[in-house]
Computed example of a mutant assay.
Amino acid sequence: MKYNLKFKDIDEERELKENFTIKDLLNELGLSSQTTVAKQNGELTIEDSIIDEGDEVQLVQIIYGG
């Protein structure tokens, strides 16, 4: 079982663990849900969303400042 991850220069197919969530992925990559937006199959998603086989997950870091 695999899914596709797109993040910055990464565009790769990755092995999918059972009940693997967006939050698990963010933690694995050392990213915060406060500064990263996730899209699953082109739609904005929440960190509790489970990644399914064949999904495309795109992560976008948000840059903000004062």
Results as ranks from 00 to 15, higher is better:
31 L>T: 06
63 I>N: 02
15 E>F: 00
18 E>K: 13
32 S>P: 09
45 T>G: 08
64 Y>L: 10
40 Q>R: 14
5 L>V: 02
35 T>D: 08
14 R>K: 14
60 V>A: 06
21 T>C: 06
25 L>R: 14
53 E>Y: 02
42 G>K: 07
21 T>S: 14
38 A>Q: 11
28 E>F: 01
29 L>F: 04
20 F>K: 01
18 E>R: 10
35 T>P: 04
43 E>R: 13
25 L>F: 04
30 G>D: 04
48 D>L: 11
10 I>M: 12
10 I>Y: 09
59 L>S: 00
51 I>T: 15
28 E>I: 00
29 L>N: 11
34 Q>N: 11
29 L>I: 06
61 Q>H: 05
23 K>V: 01
51 I>G: 15
37 V>D: 02
46 I>M: 11
46 I>S: 11
2 K>Y: 00
42 G>Q: 06
14 R>L: 02
6 K>A: 05
56 E>D: 10
18 E>A: 14
58 Q>H: 07
7 F>Q: 08
26 L>D: 13
16 L>N: 06
51 I>L: 11
33 S>R: 12
47 E>D: 14
11 D>I: 03
28 E>A: 03
3 Y>T: 08
4 N>V: 04
3 Y>E: 00
47 E>F: 05
52 D>I: 02
53 E>L: 03
58 Q>C: 09
16 L>D: 01
54 G>R: 10
43 E>H: 12
41 N>P: 02
60 V>N: 00
21 T>N: 06
64 Y>F: 08
21 T>P: 06
66 G>R: 15
44 L>Q: 03
64 Y>H: 10
44 L>W: 07
52 D>L: 07
42 G>W: 05
36 T>L: 12
61 Q>A: 01
48 D>C: 07
58 Q>E: 15
41 N>M: 09
52 D>R: 15
60 V>E: 02
50 I>S: 14
63 I>K: 04
6 K>C: 08
52 D>A: 14
65 G>L: 05
45 T>P: 03
31 L>V: 02
40 Q>I: 13
20 F>G: 00
39 K>P: 01
22 I>Q: 10
60 V>K: 01
66 G>A: 08
9 D>Q: 11
23 K>P: 02
8 K>F: 05
45 T>Y: 04
37 V>Q: 07
5 L>T: 06
13 E>P: 02
47 E>N: 12
39 K>N: 09
2 K>E: 08
31 L>D: 07
39 K>T: 13
21 T>F: 00
51 I>R: 15
36 T>Q: 09
61 Q>I: 08
44 L>P: 00
28 E>K: 13
2 K>C: 01
57 V>H: 13
39 K>C: 12
29 L>T: 03
58 Q>F: 11
19 N>D: 12
33 S>I: 09
28 E>V: 00
12 E>T: 08
61 Q>V: 10
6 K>N: 08
37 V>E: 03
65 G>E: 11
62 I>L: 13
18 E>L: 07
26 L>C: 04
8 K>G: 01
42 G>C: 08
43 E>F: 14
25 L>T: 07
59 L>I: 04
64 Y>C: 09
49 S>A: 15
35 T>G: 04
25 L>N: 10
56 E>A: 11
23 K>Y: 01
16 L>E: 00
42 G>D: 05
8 K>D: 15
16 L>M: 03
38 A>H: 07
